[in-house]
Simulated scan of single mutants.
Amino acid sequence: MQKWIDVIRLANNGNLNPDQRIEKSEEEWKSLLTEEQFYVTRKKGTERAHSSEMCNLFEPGKYACVCCNTVLFDSEEKFQSGTGWPSFTQPIKENTINYIKDVTFGMYRIETTCSTCDAHLGHVFQDGPMPSGLRFCINAVALKKVKSDEKKVTFGGGCFWCTEAMFQQLKGVVNVESGYSGGEIINPTYREVCSGTTGHAEVIEITYLPSEISFEDLVKIHLTTHNPTTINKQGADRGTQYRSIIFYRTDDEKMQALKVIEDVQSAYDDMIVTEVKMFEHFHKAEANHQDYYNRNSETGYCMAVINPKLAKLKSLYQDKLKK
Rank of each mutant, 00 (worst) to 15 (best):
Q37A: 12
N294Y: 04
D127S: 03
S266F: 11
S115P: 06
H50T: 07
G128W: 00
Y292W: 14
A257D: 00
V219G: 10
E76T: 14
K314I: 14
C55P: 01
V7D: 00
V146N: 01
Y39V: 06
A119E: 08
T230G: 07
N139Q: 14
G61M: 05
K62L: 09
A285W: 09
Y190D: 03
K43T: 11
E27F: 13
F125C: 10
P91R: 04
M1Y: 13
N307W: 08
T116I: 09
A140F: 03
T89S: 15
D74T: 14
E59A: 13
L316A: 11
N227V: 00
N56W: 11
G84P: 00
N95F: 02
G182P: 00
K259P: 04
S115Y: 02
F73A: 03
T229R: 14
L121N: 07
A119Y: 08
T116Q: 10
E150R: 12
K30P: 06
S132R: 07
M107I: 07
W29N: 05
P210V: 02
H283Y: 14
I186F: 09
S211Q: 05
I138F: 02
E150V: 14
T299E: 15
Y242A: 06
N288W: 02
N56C: 06
Y208I: 09
S132M: 08
T163K: 13
K254Q: 09
N17G: 03
Y293D: 13
P18T: 05
Q290M: 03
V276N: 08
C65T: 02
Y99M: 06
A287K: 13
L57W: 10
H50Q: 04
W161E: 07
P228R: 12
T46K: 00
C55W: 08
E262A: 11
F167W: 10
F167H: 10
G128R: 06
G106F: 00
